[in-house]
Design a binder for these strands. Structure first.
Length: 338
DNA sequence: CGACTTTGACCCGCGC
DNA sequence: GCGCGGGTCAAAGTCG
């Protein structure tokens, strides 16, 4: 069960500013009896929330991991944080901003890779609108939709929330990331035997969504996409005994006991995250995407360093969630190349 | 009984 | 304009 084969197969990818890979949560076997509930042990528990719980920026979270990736807290990591706190951002902080970050190891140097959020950012029709109000407006639109009272005003392109996709090697589809989710839909995925599930954060006023689908290429890999940002602290009502404190910013703060308690479990994990191309046009000036990600993306992803196996490298390049992440044109180009 | 899941229907955007 | 596929709704069912 303990699979610690941290791969150096693809150092080139791992060396990018976005280290990437797959979270191997097969360790949950024997822990979880249910399909989506892991008893008192949540995903965060299993991953062992990292000590460096405050990720100064999104990009910082995706620096290439210093080998070996575990233990989580390394001297280099601490040094880097100190640098950041002192106003000396690491080189990775120049990593382009993306509200929807997904590894695409097959095209690590693709300059055409862009996030839908960037597209969305270009589609803002009401620049004066505060982002916090966007969700409300969207809700209103939905209500109008339900009442067949479509607004007569100029058709607005639906603006998507910042999104972040990652792959997890797991036996269970819905990983417990500490937040409470309500499933509101399930759809069959084209060219995939596995359905895609849609979840919404159950907290009132929190419009964060996540989609979960299993890779058709590798049934053991779960692709999860987070969308939006939580408007509340984490976690709302933990399903399990998370033992996690909260700081005012909403970042999770693992308790020391918690950490020591689960140190052994961390070593049973193979945490990877695939990230998008380093060429993503992310800028630190667009705080919403950064904070949005930080607020919505599970801290185990925000805070960890990840390695990048070459296996499964193309899992997201063909279909499914990737369709939302890779621009249509790019997909076309990829098609033509085949 | 409340919270959550399931599932068919519906809406919308996009490509042809 | 049409069809397809993704995303969402909401009623019914399930579970603790």
């Amino acid at each position: 069960m303990a699979n610690l084969s941290f791969s150096d197969e693809n150092p080139a990818v791992a060396a990018t500013s976005f280290g990437g890979g797959i979270f191997d949560v097969s360790a949950c076997e024997g822990i979880s009896g249910g399909d989506s509930k892991w008893g008192s042990l949540g995903f965060m528990d299993l991953l062992g929330i990292s000590q460096d719980f405050i990720a100064p920026s999104l990009f910082d979270s995706f620096q290439p991991p210093p080998p070996p990736p575990l233990p989580l807290s390394t001297s280099s990591e601490l040094h880097r944080q100190q640098q950041l706190q002192q106003g000396h951002p690491s080189p990775a902080s120049t990593v382009p901003e993306s509200s929807e970050v997904l590894t695409n190891p097959t095209t690590p140097n693709s300059s055409s890779f862009s996030s839908s959020s960037n597209e969305a950012a270009n589609d803002i029709h009401e620049p004066t609108k505060v982002e916090d109000n966007e969700e409300q407006e969207e809700d209103q639109d939905k209500t109008k939709k339900q009442l067949n009272l479509k607004p007569k005003k100029k058709k607005q392109k639906k603006q998507r929330e910042p999104r972040f996709a990652f792959m997890t090697k797991s036996e269970v589809d819905h990983l417990d990331d500490g937040y409470r989710w309500r499933k509101y839909g399930q759809k069959a995925v084209k060219n995939s035997p596995f359905p895609r599930s849609y979840y919404r954060c159950t907290s009132a006023g929190c419009g964060v969504k996540k989609r979960v689908e299993r890779s058709s290429d590798d049934a053991t890999i779960v692709v999860t996409t987070y969308e939006g940002q939580h408007t509340h602290t984490y976690p709302i009502t933990p399903r399990g005994t998370m033992g996690i404190g909260l700081d005012p910013s909403g970042f999770s703060v693992p308790q020391p006991q918690y950490f020591h308690q689960h140190q052994h479990q961390q070593q049973q994990w193979q945490p990877y995250i695939y990230n998008s191309s380093p060429s993503l046009n992310i800028s630190t000036t667009r705080s919403t995407a950064t904070t949005g990600l930080n607020a919505s993306f599970p801290s185990f992803l925000r805070e960890r360093r990840f390695n990048t196996p070459s296996s499964s490298a193309s899992l997201l390049t063909d279909r499914g969630l990737l369709q939302d992440i890779v621009p249509t044109q790019m997909r076309k180009e990829a098609k033509e190349e085949q």
